[in-house]
């Protein structure tokens, strides 16, 4: 097996393990940490199904962000929506036969790639031109945008500038999944693209990308405003019950 293939194969396993274990650890930590008090923020729904709807709106259309800043919203939403489409489109490298709906979104994939770059570029520009945002930006915030831009750029260039050996890539990916390694096409563009994706996977659980699981655990968003209808016992419940009649 070529050395490059061995290195990338091992890196993919390590990165996947870090991503899953790291995220699993954080999610478990959020899950286990008690939320002492009821602190939903207005406009809070009064019951659980209302919370599901609120959460869906936050995830799908970034509702709160829409209320607060249209520029960040448009760039941010376009970037995420496009990234979601691009990610789903990548499923074709991991499935054989390719699922029907993945085939259906293929034509949109290319537009999504460009849209994602556009959104990211907008967010990056904001970090330099809006004084308030510049003030709160640390190097890692810029690096994230550059990393994602680079992933997008190398990905698109494989489509438009120097097409890579897709068949070989797919064989490599499926090989990884079924522990039956196949050689990875040694194309510089592809190697950079995959290298960057691997770094993103490794960084994910240690970074602000925790906003993705974080949103679902945010008490101001996931609590219903049902305090007068339901009890919400906390750390003092045992003591309170023992106060005697």
């Amino acid at each position: 097996m070529p050395t490059v293939t061995v290195i990338y194969a091992l890196l993919f396993y390590v990165a996947t393990a870090i991503l899953i274990v790291g995220l699993g650890f954080k999610i478990r930590q959020y899950w286990r940490t008690p939320q002492p008090l009821k602190i939903p923020t207005t406009p809070a729904p009064m019951n659980g199904s209302g919370v599901v709807v609120r959460m869906l709106r936050e995830v799908v259309i970034f509702e709160s962000l829409f209320k607060s800043n249209k520029w960040i919203w448009i760039f941010g939403w376009v970037f995420h929506a496009a990234m979601a489409v691009a990610l789903l489109r990548h499923l074709r490298y991991f499935t054989e036969p390719v699922w029907g709906w993945v085939v259906l979104i293929q034509p949109f994939g290319v537009y999504a790639g460009f849209a994602m770059m556009l959104g990211l570029a907008g967010l990056l520009v904001r970090r330099f031109v809006v004084a308030r945002v510049r003030y709160i930006t640390s190097p890692s915030d810029i690096l994230f945008l550059l990393l994602l831009l680079a992933i997008g750029a190398t990905g698109l260039s494989m489509k438009f500038v120097s097409p890579t050996d897709i068949i070989g890539l797919k064989a490599f990916m499926l090989g990884l999944m079924y522990f039956d390694w196949q050689p990875l096409p040694e194309d510089a563009n592809l190697l950079i693209h995959l290298g960057l994706v691997i770094s993103l996977m490794i960084i994910f659980p240690f970074s602000k990308l925790l906003h993705a699981p974080g949103l679902f655990f945010s008490p101001s968003r996931n609590q219903p405003d049902d305090v007068r209808m339901k009890r919400h016992p906390g750390a003092f419940e045992a003591e309170n019950q023992a106060r005697g009649a």
């Binding site: 959020y30 940490t33 008690p34 906003h211 974080g214 945010s218």
Partner: peptide, 19 residues
């Protein structure tokens, strides 16, 4: 002991919407 604190500290992406 405070989930809100933990989640809020981890989750901010410095988007600037609150600034």
């Amino acid at each position: 002991t405070n989930r809100a604190l933990r989640v809020y500290l981890d989750s901010c992406v410095k988007c600037g919407a609150c600034t």
